[in-house]
Design a binder for these strands. Structure first.
Lengths: 309, 309
DNA sequence: GTCATTTGTTGGACTCAGTCAAGTAAATTG
DNA sequence: CAATTTACTTGACTGAGTCCAACAAATGAC
């Protein structure tokens, strides 16, 4: 970073810190009408979340004074929220766990905290919460020291709005990356719309890859007739590349197609999409047809791949 | 947001809050080896940044107790960091300003704070600081928006991904609000897809209402044949209701349809959508047909409205 | 086996941040 | 003009959190 840019960047961070200090201050009022303080809640949360922590780990994790923590632990033990047992591997240390009563209190904290945030998010436009979460993820992943603990992705079936999301994200990506025009989005929307309109749970399926509530990938299996399943709209967002999500989605598609009784699985793609092609090849697909076209503006090499099930 | 998606999103926010509380805790140690506290710094910063503030403004801005602030101001005055002069327009109030000495201390605070953050940023890869700052901007703009003084909405033509956004936002809204099923999203996607596939700039148009980079509304005019324009997919997001965007979009539709040489403008809607209907009535549309249907699950009253141009 | 280190616990003094109540003086409202 | 509200000030107080010192017991390093 150049020094000039540095000041602007740093002051932007300082500005954000002032803003977020305020924001957190408002949120933390949630604990006001309980007999516990914010620090109490943080300790109980940490103990409840992991299960069986040493006091020394807590002081490091939460940046608390050992003396202070010791007193909090003592109070919690007297209140019956946690119990401590000596650590068998290190007799100096002790293992701290929540009791059932502690678990109840812990869940109460979680409930309150969630309600607070939900109150804020209610006022937001569709898609805004996801943008915020994605931004938070970016900050945490970048500033957080240990890079290994990025939150994992899950794969689930589609819900309301997901089809629209698929169209939107693919259209943006192919337009920005390859300069495809409107017609691609039109085709994607039509394909996706027909998929939903003719949806048959036995023969059709849509998978969404999601990470901390944000959609990051998709794949669709639709009935192509004559025992052929069509794999469509495979996509993994830039933010989630390199995690093997593409392969996971394709595997899911193959398994489902087999179980649904299809005899083969077919897909249409364009040869510029290298990573996707690599996944198809690895999964055993073979190229059955190829033709140049200009369906979306630039000249492209359309390819049909087939896998016998 | 659906409740299921909500938990993942909210817990991601809670996770970030825990992380950032820690991060801020570390940063705020910057004031430790100065004779001033974090609150002192906040006060001096606010006074230094604006110049000539009333005490009451400070209490509001920094969420401080008047008594508490009064003492801080007193101490600062004794230390020669600030000076207070009576407000000529209101003798109860006083104007607080930094002295030269105060300015020096203020700059020292800024320097320290910057050094702290710079220390963190030194370890980052090229481009990462910018990503972090952009993410912070997103969070601040989304959460911190004082929605009353919010940046105004603009209306523009569609871009890549907007059609997908329309499908997504409408599907989510009608599913959550009225319990409509998948078939609505399917129909919306097909309609929107056909619109793009057959797009004719002379006869078709799509408007997007946007506020600080976020889509908040939409409307489409498509050629219905026989000189009839079809108004479709009118939508204003929850976050932007009450700003008259719906009317603005409909007006835009009417003007375009007239200019494009259509003889009438027709639209299909459902009677439960009260605010939309009010807009149509006001614009001069008249109800020409009505029929009960169950296209999207619950029983609905479909209505066709027409405006002669 | 000794010595330094780590993991806790306890006591006491202290500061910071904030609350509460009461009071003064000016401004605003009816 | 009286009553209420607003802008501060002061005193008395509290509870959260920090700092320091001392201590016990176990562990690790050499």
């Amino acid at each position: 970073m150049s020094p000039a840019a540095e000041f602007a960047t740093i002051d932007a961070v300082r500005d954000f810190n002032r803003f977020y200090t305020n924001f957190l201050g408002v949120l933390n009022k949630a604990y006001l009408d309980s007999p516990y303080t914010l620090t109490d809640a943080r300790v109980l949360f940490e103990v409840g979340f992991r299960g069986g922590v040493a006091a020394s780990a807590l002081t490091r994790e939460l940046h608390l004074d050992p003396a202070y923590l010791s007193r909090i632990v003592k109070r919690f033990r007297e209140d019956g929220l946690i119990e401590t047992t000596p650590d068998p591997t290190d007799a100096r240390s002790q293992v701290i766990k929540v009791t059932e009563k502690g678990q109840v209190q812990f869940e109460e904290f979680v409930r309150r905290s969630r309600a607070q945030i939900a109150g804020y998010f209610e006022k937001l436009a569709i898609g805004e919460p996801e943008r915020v979460v994605a931004a938070m993820q970016t900050i945490k992943d970048t500033l957080g020291m240990d890079r290994t603990t990025a939150s994992p992705a899950i794969i689930r079936n589609h819900r309301a709005g997901d089809i629209g999301w698929i169209v939107q994200s693919q259209a943006r990506f192919y337009t920005e990356e390859f300069g495809w025009d409107d017609r691609f989005e039109g085709l994607a929307a039509e394909v996706a719309g027909k998929f939903l309109s003719n949806f048959n749970p036995q023969k059709d399926r849509c998978w969404i890859a999601e990470r901390s509530g944000v959609n990051v990938g998709s794949a669709i299996i639709a009935d192509g007739g004559d025992g052929v399943a069509k794999l469509r709209l495979l996509y993994v967002d830039k933010a989630a590349r390199g995690l093997g999500l593409g392969k996971l989605l394709v595997d899911e598609c193959i398994r489902f197609s087999r179980d649904a009784g299809y005899s083969s699985l077919s897909l249409w793609t364009n040869d510029i999409l290298d990573t996707a092609r690599a996944i198809y090849v690895k999964a055993g697909f073979r190229l059955t047809a190829e033709e140049k076209h200009r369906m979306f503006g630039p000249e492209l090499n359309g390819q049909t791949w087939v896998l016998d099930l």
